[in-house]
Design a protein around this nucleic acid. Sequence first.
DNA 1: CGTGCGTTGTCAGCGTTTTGTCAGGCACAA
DNA 2: TTGTGCCTGACAAAACGCTGACAACGCACG
Lengths: 223, 223
Amino acid sequence: MRILLVEDDSRIARDLMTALENAGYVVEHESDGEEAWFMGDTENYDAAILDLGLPSMDGLAILKRWRETKRAFPVLILTARGTWRERVEGIDAGADDYLPKPFQMDELLARLRAIIRRSTGQSSDFVEIGPVTLDTKQMRITVNGAPVNLSPQEYRLVSYLMHHAGRVVTQQELTEHIYAQDFERDSNVIEVLVGRSRKKLGVDLIETRRGFGYIIASPGNEA
Amino acid sequence: MRILLVEDDSRIARDLMTALENAGYVVEHESDGEEAWFMGDTENYDAAILDLGLPSMDGLAILKRWRETKRAFPVLILTARGTWRERVEGIDAGADDYLPKPFQMDELLARLRAIIRRSTGQSSDFVEIGPVTLDTKQMRITVNGAPVNLSPQEYRLVSYLMHHAGRVVTQQELTEHIYAQDFERDSNVIEVLVGRSRKKLGVDLIETRRGFGYIIASPGNEA
DNA sequence: CGTGCGTTGTCAGCGTTTTGTCAGGCACAA
DNA sequence: TTGTGCCTGACAAAACGCTGACAACGCACG
């Protein structure tokens, strides 16, 4: 899970990053508002933690602009000024939850889990691509109806690619989503994983885009 | 099965907890409304029993906020003021059933069973999977008609898995539903429990998905 | 008031699977 | 041809889940 943390107080930010990383998230930190907006607008996160009262751009403004451009990841708002007014404004601007400072780290983690669950909870149970079916309930992949015995990492990899079929996915992106803490960059785990998955699947599903990453053709777009 | 009990009258709460625990449920009790909402929002329960007329936050408000945030566990409303109006309001707010005080404990247990049954998609008090039958009323499991002598914890485990047949259930999820909130995470109790249950059942019912959890194949999905 | 039995969680040991690394080789593009 | 990126097989370490033994505990029964 990849989280965008927008917080200008460097002490709080450091503590939060530590706690979040310990909890298994991949965290990216931004202290500048304009920069934060750009990151949220262009990158893919599973959630954002947003401090109100930033320099250069107001937190609420960032949130509004994200929502205007249809960025849908859940946002948890954080602020020292825990007034009723702000709470309403935050929710109106499209926040998913609200946490006044000071807060307990456990509560933050719990609320973060809650908003992520809500946002991903209603995904469909199956993804079908050609003869390959991903059953998220059974956590199983079948080819022509026959179950394939993938290891956890292989399953995560194929699952991620299938969920993002029709789009090139970089090795870096895969690494970020498959591994919790940041992982040694110069390693060929992904290549190995792809190889093993391909062999087990026995079908041409994962295509290599030399120099860019991997792609699974989406059902409509043969590519 | 893990139940959230929201009740401020400590005498009633105590009696209820005793009865519920005797009936095999894991019960967590909250008397404060705000706190109760938070627990229901962040933890996973199989059902909640909710007293209306609490201090600090109205029971109906709690329920509404749960439903707004997509929390779907069944809720049984409990109130002394058994008016027609309140009943309607409760149902509108997303309650699954309604029980006026004073009530018979047996009736409460029956209604609780009913709403849990409905929520897990079962239509009777029995869950049958192959030769194994779960009788939720008698709290018994039979294999080919012969009763199996499971301990309380083993029963909870198998029962939970059977209620969620066809889905992979993680060890963490099992822990959360079989034990109350505060339980050491780093332990292999679940593995031990699974082992003991398997031995007593003597049938291949519980399948291990290494790295993910356990699954019982649902009647339709042969796997 | 003991006593014995069933239950429960912990633990250490074991076999198996998984996983990351590495080196060598291949393929593709310049 | 050359360089870069990707693939592959082998290997060792780590992770994972299963099991039997054991001690603590509660509880019913004598």
